[in-house]
Design a protein around this nucleic acid. Structure first.
Lengths: 208, 208
DNA sequence: TACATATGTTAGAGTTTCTTACTTTGACAA
DNA sequence: TTGTCAAAGTAAGAAACTCTAACATATGTA
């Protein structure tokens, strides 16, 4: 390595300790961790700043307020959920009802893996926030489900019947996710196994 | 009215302006209103005190902390929900699947009538709170549902099949409640009517 | 009447969100 | 090289919030 290169590298890596590099992303990750740790309501901007190593005023250069930080976490989460769904069905032929079951399973799996993010999006925290990116991310997930239902019942477009069946299945896995997430609630359905339950409800809803 | 009665009444009604009378109940109601107004996360003890007309320290004679105030609101809400269910099925013969449909309808109706209370109980706010009264109130609601399912499929006790079917129906109405409550989510199921949807899913789940 | 108890209040410590005014850094043009 | 500018940080502080401690007042009972 030449001396010049060394100098350049050192300069680049130093990051000057003043400018963070990508504080926005850093804060989103810090927020996600804290929310996942302390629950959706036990999050403070101050904590996120401590974790990211910046002053408590720094976030306000990147987000309008605390709520926008939480919304950003949700948007990222919905993106991950959709990606999970798509890779999970990749090996199953189109029109196979197992695709629907697997998609539902991914929904639940996500809810259990990132419970705080899930509650953040669907638990009423982001209700009045009206963020377009978040809305779009959510719709993309549901569109995926509708397409699978259509393929299963042999429809080439999203007819009212497809809408209705997809909506039923969504309601079911959505509710199931919330219930399984809450220890006290999950205890009320003791000897129940998720996979067979999912396959069962899928069959019932997709049938005529 | 006699003078004596007048004096007594006046004394009783005066409430001495120092002692509230029933501050615990007053604070629960104030909390409910505020939570319903500003969303589950937009509630402050201070606001409740202003609304009830007492100092910000007064609640701590009745509740351990903010969380306990919210839990108390949930417990009252679950009680109302159960009462609604019971009076709604009173005129339908036992074993009629319409009883199950109606119970589900009441669940959803409650969720839409007191959305913030509903989210408070089920949205993760009371997760780590572990309150026995709250847990019991929730179980009482589910027990009601299980009994109806058992009657419909001709079982005299809560068998695993009954458990499974009741759990399915609960998951469904639970998820549907959350979805309908959220304007952005409800838009995703546009031309869907709740009553027929409920009857449809009930039939599918109760069938063999 | 007098005391114990329940239920209030005031004052204040310690956090929290968010604003304002200032500083540092990096990039680019002259 | 140097001057300018926008972007991204800091420090300090206002306003609000939760909760505690110490004190005050009312109520019920012996």
């Amino acid at each position: 390595m030449s001396t010049t290169a060394d100098t350049q590298t050192a300069t680049t890596l130093k990051k000057s300790a003043y400018h963070h590099g990508d504080l926005r992303a850093g804060l989103i990750e810090a927020t996600r961790q804290l929310v996942e740790q302390n629950g959706p309501d036990g999050f403070s901007v101050s904590d996120a700043c401590r974790l990211a190593g910046v002053s408590t005023a720094a976030p306000y250069k990147h987000f309008k307020n605390k709520g926008e930080m939480l919304v950003a976490v949700c948007v990222e989460g919905m993106g991950r959920l959709r990606a999970n769904m798509q890779s999970a069905v990749a090996d199953i032929p189109l029109g196979d009802p197992r695709r629907v079951t697997v998609i539902g399973g991914e929904y639940i799996k996500y809810a259990l893996a990132e419970p705080a993010c899930f509650k953040l999006k669907f638990g009423g925290f982001t209700d009045g926030m009206d963020d377009d990116a978040l809305k779009a991310a959510g719709e993309a997930v549901f569109d995926t489900a509708k397409a699978e239902v259509a393929a299963c019942i042999g429809e080439s477009e999203i007819t009212p019947i497809v809408q209705q069946k997809a909506f039923m299945l969504w309601s079911f896995v959505h509710g199931l996710s919330f219930i399984l997430e809450d220890k006290d609630l999950a205890e009320m359905g003791p000897e129940i196994e998720i996979e067979p339950l999912l396959a069962d409800i899928t069959r019932r809803v997709l049938s005529d």
